[in-house]
Design a protein around this nucleic acid. Structure first.
Lengths: 194, 194
DNA sequence: GTCTATAATCAGATAGAC
DNA sequence: GTCTATCTGATTATAGAC
């Protein structure tokens, strides 16, 4: 065979511990801080174990991304199925940790093709789910708008929440309160009868 | 004195050449690719020259940022002073290169405090200029809106352009055409009389 | 599954000659 | 202003013992 190298079991406890540590590091210090040594140190393990569980560092990064992305899709589905789907969606998309991680992975996507395609795949799944759910609500008459299609609605909500969270991380908040209030008013109007 | 180390003149030609190379690298491969050796190689110089012109790599990154940011503020001012300020602003904020660079620097901001505060400073200047210009246009009656304040307008436009450009880089375009059309309609309506 | 040991590479930065 | 040479430390990854 080509590769005689051993790899740890997919369900091993320390595998999860390493993914946790990598996620924390990424969140606090950005993807450049996610090195085998730093991840292992945070997990209380030797750095060689990172290579035992993950063939390459990119595989660890992908594992972090996939876990978060799956959780995100699930929670999004719950929000869209709730009584006030729009406001639940808005609340979900303003999660700081999720957004920060997504932004880090988008930065990584420049150089690592495997990560780029994975992000694109999940982002499309997420958007399609949103569009379909919103289209359903429009069809049922639970949402009404003269100007705004489901596609536009999802793009706008995603954009505003992402950028506001990024700016918050910078310590910049000019216009945020006004914009949040504007979005709330807008969502409330959409969720009412015409 | 504390530092006997020599530093190249601020206006030296090779200083500019290095900033150019760093900017290109950052754009094409992300901030992690901006190492002294890679920058020098792209500039056709020895890597030690990077350290001769920049005390530390962060200073090079800051130089890249400042140059772009100054250009950006200038072009934004021109857009806001033009005949169709809103659409000029929108066109300016959908510049792919500028946005990609800003995103890279936002990623860097996690770890490097000096860069974080510099970005925040410029971002605030940019937003304040936009808000003031738009407020002036509202006051003159050249813009009209029942629901949307200048603050909200700037945050929305910035958000949508940034996120659409980031998603484009991923190869993801669901809802982009519809959203662009929506924004165009909206801006046209704002620029008309009530 | 975890360890020690090691290889090979790359990074930022500085000293000193020219 | 640019060069050679070098230091120091970090990185990913692998081999092989236990």
């Amino acid at each position: 065979m080509a590769s005689p190298r051993r790899l740890g079991a997919p369900d091993a406890k320390n595998r999860t511990v390493l993914i946790d540590a990598a996620e924390q590091l990424m969140l606090e210090e950005g993807y450049a801080a996610v090195t085998a040594r730093r991840v292992a140190a945070r997990a209380g393990l030797k750095h060689q174990l990172v290579h035992y569980y993950f063939r390459a560092m990119d595989d660890l990064l992908l594992a972090v991304f996939r876990r978060r992305a799956e959780q995100g899709l699930e929670r999004q589905a719950q929000a869209l199925a709730s009584g006030q789907p729009l406001r639940a969606l808005w609340q979900h998309s303003t999660d700081t940790r999720d957004t920060t991680l997504v932004m880090e992975f988008m930065g990584l996507a420049n150089t690592r093709e495997a990560i780029r395609s994975e992000i694109a795949r999940y982002a499309e799944r997420s958007r399609v789910a949103q569009v379909e759910a919103l289209a359903g609500l429009f069809a049922e008459g639970r949402l009404t708008s003269d100007a705004c299609s489901p596609e536009v609605l999802t793009v706008l909500l995603t954009s505003v929440s992402r950028v506001m969270i990024m700016e918050q991380a910078l310590g910049m908040t000019i216009g945020h309160a006004e914009t949040a209030a504007f979005v709330e008013r807008w969502l409330r109007r959409l969720e009412r009868e015409p």
